[in-house]
């Protein structure tokens, strides 16, 4: 059934949400962090692939390696969560939207935790 609603009423809808800029800003700040870290980490990974398990552990367990990986993973999953959220909001409506947004949030949280705990384990074991 077509609703008898003026175009203005339809466009105004529920009004402005009052947020959105924070999301935009966080996306850009995490992007900047990744922009600085990714080239460095790529270089480290190349070196890691060429050397064996022991030397990779030593790098990942060092103060520099651990902190780099911690920041990288955190910025990465935050950026990822924000990005996938936008994609979901663009293409999905109805009940699918909140469902996918929850999966996105908890998925990112879970994988971020696995990564962080792995890094910390390596750091503590030395």
């Amino acid at each position: 059934m077509a609703r008898l609603q003026t175009p203005r009423a339809k466009i105004t809808g529920l009004g402005s949400a009052g947020h959105g800029s924070q999301h935009f800003l966080a996306q850009r700040v995490t992007a900047l962090v990744l922009l600085m870290l990714v080239p460095f980490v790529l270089f480290q990974f190349l070196a890691a692939f060429s050397s064996g398990y022991e030397s990779v552990r030593i790098w990942a367990g060092s103060l520099l390696g651990t902190s780099t990986l911690l920041v990288l993973l955190s910025a990465m999953f935050w950026h990822l969560k924000l990005g996938v959220q936008v994609v979901v909001e663009d293409y999905f409506g109805g009940w699918v939207r909140p469902a996918l947004l929850l999966i996105n949030f908890f998925g990112c949280l879970a994988f971020w935790l696995v990564g962080i705990l792995s890094i910390l384990k390596i750091f503590i074991e030395g």
């Binding site: 402005s16 009052g18 959105g20 935009f24 909001e89």
Partner: peptide, 10 residues
């Protein structure tokens, strides 16, 4: 204020 919204502007 009216534009501060994930959909309207962003």
């Amino acid at each position: 204020d009216a534009l501060e919204d994930p959909f309207r502007l962003y």
